[in-house]
Simulated scan of single mutants.
Amino acid sequence: MEFPKPHIHHPQGPHTHTVILLHGRGSNGPEFAEELFSSSTSKGKNLPSCLPSYRWVFPTSCDRWSTTFEEQMCAWFDAYSLDNIQERQELQKDGIKESVLHILEILGEEAQLLDGRFSHIYLGGMSQGMATSLWTFLAATAMGRIQGSLGGLLGFCGWLPFAQQLEQLLSEPFLSPGSSQAQSLISRWFFEEIAGEISRSDQPVDCSILSTPVFLSHGSDDPWVSVELGRQASHVLRRIMVHVDWQEFTGAEGDGHWVKEPEGFDRILKFLEC
Rank of each mutant, 00 (worst) to 15 (best):
Q147R: 13
S176P: 03
L210I: 11
E273Q: 15
S234A: 15
W65G: 01
N46V: 12
D222H: 10
S217I: 12
L47W: 00
D115C: 12
L138M: 15
Q164W: 14
S133Y: 07
F118G: 07
A252I: 08
K260P: 03
W159P: 05
P213D: 13
S99W: 01
H7C: 08
E34F: 01
L175C: 05
G230R: 11
G251P: 00
Q247L: 14
E87A: 14
L104Q: 14
H102P: 01
F191G: 04
E110W: 01
W135L: 11
G144N: 08
L210W: 12
I121M: 02
V242W: 09
G144K: 00
P204A: 12
G219R: 13
G219P: 02
M143R: 08
E90N: 10
W135A: 02
W258L: 03
Y80G: 02
T212L: 08
L104D: 07
P52Q: 05
G178F: 09
P52R: 04
P177T: 14
Q12G: 01
Q232R: 15
S99L: 03
S81R: 14
V100C: 07
S179N: 12
P30N: 03
W258G: 03
I194N: 02
Y122W: 12
R239S: 14
R117Q: 14
H10T: 10
V214M: 14
E2L: 11
A195K: 01
Q232T: 15
D83R: 15
L47H: 00
I8D: 09
G151P: 06
F190C: 00
E109R: 14
E35L: 04
W224K: 12
E2Y: 10
P223D: 09
T250W: 13
L36D: 00
V19T: 05
Y80N: 03
E98M: 05
S180M: 09
D221S: 08
N46D: 12
A139K: 07
G116Q: 11
E273K: 15
P173A: 00
L113V: 13
G152I: 08
G196I: 06
S217K: 09
H17R: 14
G230K: 10
Q232F: 06
Q92N: 08
S119H: 12
G125P: 06
G158R: 07
S199P: 04
R200P: 07
C207T: 14
A75H: 03
G29V: 02
T67Y: 04
L272C: 10
E167H: 10
G152Q: 11
C207P: 08
L170D: 09
Y54N: 02
C50K: 04
A195N: 04
P177S: 09
T18A: 02
F162E: 03
L107T: 09
E193A: 07
I20M: 06
M73F: 03
N28V: 04
S211P: 09
